[in-house]
Amino acid sequence: MSEVLKKLSGLGVSIWLDDISRERLRTGNLEQLVKEKSVVGVTSNPTIFAKALSKGDAYDDQVRDLAVRGVDVEEASRAITTYDIRWAADVLRPVYDRSEGVDGRVSIEVDPRLARETAKTIAEARALWWMVDRPNLFIKIPATEEGLPAITAALADGISVNVTLIFSLERYGAVIDAYFAGLEQARANGHDISKLESVASFFVSRVDTEIDKRLDKIGTDEAKALRSQAGLANARLAYALFEERFGTDRWARLRDAGARPQRPLWASTGVKDPNLPPTLYVDGLVAEGVVNTMPEATLDAEAAKGDPTGDTITTRYDEARAVMQALKDAGVDYDDVVKVLEDEGVEKFEVSWKEMLEIIAGELKDKAAKA
């Protein structure tokens, strides 16, 4: 057991792995990470699946069967991805039971091509929930404007949701509203809201990447001194908003009815700038009741070099506000930054999804020819 990761977990941070593959599952690697590195959850996305499918032979048998059956590429993609998610959910079921449903969660994303289509996102969320059929599943729905009502509708149907691609504080506030509305509707629909869980995935490193690019273009010494500070500051202010909104009377009524808070989840926590410490977005975002989903390289770096010393969020609100004000004074347009990041985030996942479909289509064609 990694003592650093054990300490991080003890400080209230749930450690999730931002990766999944059939190879990781069949070798028992995920079970090993649960035992040795305090991993209590798994997230996936289209990029992760595209990468997993492009390597090795772990999917060959299933793809061969799908090819023999004449399954089309869209149905094949759902069969393949939900198989991995179901398996991972079973691996993490003991964690789910032990934590009374808080952790032990596995996330699967709706088709990112639907990110701007509310009705289709809702239908896809229902279909994935039914196909995986595990209580410790999270359906990932993007926090686009069109995604917000889909989040509410999914929760109202008793579906636990991982809200993804959150960049701005304003949008995060809307996500919390969507969560409250979903719980209220779920309760009215007769669901036990104590069984519903949700996380709000706030992206971190991508904020620094976009803002640092703009600071370099501004070029002043003052601008350069602000590099690599925005991601942490933005996330810390998101936690301040979490504390504020989950201290309201509206939340108190839901809590008294058995609801659990929608935990902030730090996503995109692998550093993009090689000059930065690889543990920056882990040790810098420690507080009770948060989730940090890490690529394996970041998980390993934290285990080897991490130094979680205590709460590094609630003690730094003033510092975070000062950073955001300084960025504004330097000429960084925050509203434009978060819009660009959301648009790029959706586009990148669409590209990865199409890449995954192309890989599956090629494999189906190859296996059908050899059948």
Rank of each mutant, 00 (worst) to 15 (best):
I141K: 13
E146R: 03
E146N: 07
L148G: 04
I122H: 05
P142N: 01
A150E: 00
I122T: 07
I122L: 09
L137S: 13
A143I: 01
F138V: 06
A125Y: 05
A125F: 04
I151H: 00
P149T: 01
D133Y: 13
A153H: 10
A119D: 14
R134M: 08
D133L: 14
K140W: 06
M131R: 14
L155N: 07
A154H: 06
V132K: 08
T144A: 03
L148T: 02
K120R: 15
A150T: 00
N136S: 12
I122C: 03
K120L: 15
M131W: 03
P142Q: 05
A127D: 13
P149V: 03
P142M: 05
G147L: 09
W130N: 13
E146S: 09
T144Y: 00
G147Q: 08
L137F: 12
E124G: 11
A123L: 11
P142H: 02
A150R: 00
A123V: 09
R126H: 10
P135E: 08
L137V: 02
I141R: 11
I141C: 13
R126A: 12
T121A: 03
E124Q: 11
A127T: 12
A153F: 07
A127F: 08
L155Y: 09
L155A: 10
T121L: 03
W130P: 00
G147F: 01
A154R: 06
E146Y: 01
E146T: 04
I122Q: 05
L137N: 15
I141M: 11
I151K: 01
K140F: 04
T144I: 03
A154D: 09
A143F: 04
M131D: 13
K140I: 01
A154E: 05
A153P: 09
K120T: 09
K140Y: 09
E145Y: 09
D133T: 02
E145F: 07
R126K: 14
M131Q: 15
N136W: 08
I139L: 15
A154T: 07
T152D: 02
A150Q: 00
M131G: 04
F138M: 14
I122E: 07
W129D: 15
K140D: 06
N136A: 06
A125I: 10
K140L: 05
L128T: 11
P135N: 11
A143V: 02
R134I: 12
K120I: 00
P135M: 11
E145V: 04
L148A: 06
V132H: 08
T121N: 02
R126M: 08
D133E: 15
